[in-house]
């Protein structure tokens, strides 16, 4: 049984070139959800000060809406059985799509992987990949 917990961080929406140039502290996992959209896990608004300066219209807000859980290789293997599509080989990589029919994302790193989804989907995701 997966335990999905709230992932705390910030959401940063800004011009793509600004996000391209942004460096994040090493403890932060910066998930590029879209060219103009990053979910930076365990980051604070202070970490995005550069973004705010470079793009005065950027949206920088606390993001507590995702839940997730870190997976070891074996758990990831279990999860990927419920995925019709194939993950890229490079790491780190963010993949987004349906996992067991639930809109979800997986952050793949060499050591471990993070499965995450929007909070309202958590119950169905947990039930389906249990």
């Amino acid at each position: 049984m997966l335990a999905l917990n709230t992932l705390r961080g910030i959401r940063v929406v800004a011009a793509p070139h600004v996000l391209d140039a942004t460096l994040w502290p090493t403890h932060v996992a910066a998930l590029r959800i879209a060219p103009d959209d990053i979910f930076a896990i365990e980051a604070t608004e202070a970490d995005a000060a550069g973004v705010a300066a470079a793009d005065p219209h950027s949206i920088i807000v606390d993001e507590h809406g995702f839940v997730g859980c870190w997976l070891d290789h074996q758990q990831l293997e279990h999860i990927t059985r419920h995925i019709e599509w194939h993950a890229p080989l490079h790491r780190p990589a963010l993949v987004q799509g349906y996992v067991a029919g639930v809109p979800a994302k997986i952050w793949l790193t060499n050591e471990r992987s993070l499965l995450l989804c929007a909070g309202p989907y958590a119950a169905d995701l947990m039930e389906r990949v249990a």
């Binding site: 959401r11 929406v13 800004a14 103009d36 959209d37 219209h57 950027s58 949206i59 807000v61 993001e63 507590h64 809406g65 995702f66 929007a118 909070g119 309202p120 989907y121």
Partner: peptide, 9 residues
């Protein structure tokens, strides 16, 4: 413009 959907957050 920038757009952020916060519906589920």
């Amino acid at each position: 413009v920038h757009i952020l959907d916060r519906t589920m957050s």
